[in-house]
Design a binder for these strands. Structure first.
Lengths: 158, 158
DNA sequence: CCTAAATAGAACTAATCTAGTACTGATTAG
DNA sequence: CTAATCAGTACTAGATTAGTTCTATTTAGG
């Protein structure tokens, strides 16, 4: 349907794990164990989140990562945005449509920004604090083997 | 950020094109020309949409595709849902978590359904009729070379 | 001051998935 | 009966993701 990368999926998982740590720094290894994720992957993700300044890192022996802001002030959109990278929307995204041969044909035009905003709003409205609460609607997660799909949103919407 | 496949992107484009045809059947070839998309791709997409009963097809010499419902009654979610396929959410999606080794660790649990619903609602709220109106917020479309990203939703949200 | 525990960062590989093509069959108007 | 058009399937090439490996840097504690 609409997909986010595994990195983003794991990222959210890790952030919720850190939320439950309540300010105490956690090492990448500890988090990897706790979430049963491959350590190198976890390291990579945490590094990225640190660079995006959602986490601070403490090097050295008793080091680790911890949240820089209260979990209520971090949204799903923040986390996903940090991890999926600014990765070139490539041509046809910003103001320059040079590359887009269909510019004229698609008066369809404005629909993507509209959809973008709708989805962004949806993701922004969900805070890390909320996601960390165990008493969620339904105890479900989506782990696909190679990708995580934000799925079922059409076929089995509630 | 969050991506939909090109197929879905094209699908929306084609559907808006059909909307402007106002009930008149259009052949795959005509639509391909109009939207400047490769014909085989267009055929494939239209077939899928027909199977999902958003379109009816008329075979033979003066045949083509036309909408089965008024455009106000078709949402972005419908189109995207039809095209991205039921494609196995694979393990860990429905009620069976057999495959998911992390079941216990991730009390994160309920956050995906919550996010799903939010996004689904967002996509459902946008009708084909709306998307076909040329007077959109900003004349922008996103054609990436290999993928379409519902992008910028985080970094350059409005 | 030296060692072990951590993070930092970049480069690389393999598997998966998407996009697009090609081919063959079925239907229908004229 | 023939040309136009939809139907369906199988295949290929390229791009992307997921995950690994290796090396460097920082720091607590003995």
């Amino acid at each position: 349907m609409i997909r986010i990368t595994r990195e983003a999926d794991y990222g959210i998982l890790l952030m919720t794990s850190l939320t439950r740590a309540e300010g105490q720094p956690r090492s990448a290894a500890a988090l990897a164990r706790q979430c049963r994720l491959p350590l190198p992957m976890v390291s990579k993700i945490l590094k990225t989140l640190a660079r995006a300044s959602f986490l601070t890192s403490q090097r050295g022996v008793q080091g680790g990562y911890s949240l820089t802001r209260p979990p209520a002030e971090i949204s799903a959109a923040d986390i996903i945005g940090a991890l999926e990278g600014p990765l070139a929307i490539t041509e046809c995204s910003g103001e320059s449509h040079e590359g887009c041969s269909r510019q004229d044909e698609c008066e369809v035009s404005g629909h993507w920004p509209r959809i973008n905003r709708a989805i962004h709003a949806a993701l922004q409205s969900i805070s890390l604090a909320e996601m960390s609460r165990p008493d969620a609607p339904r105890p479900l997660r989506f782990h696909s083997p190679s990708r995580t799909e934000i799925a079922g949103i059409v076929d089995r919407a509630v």
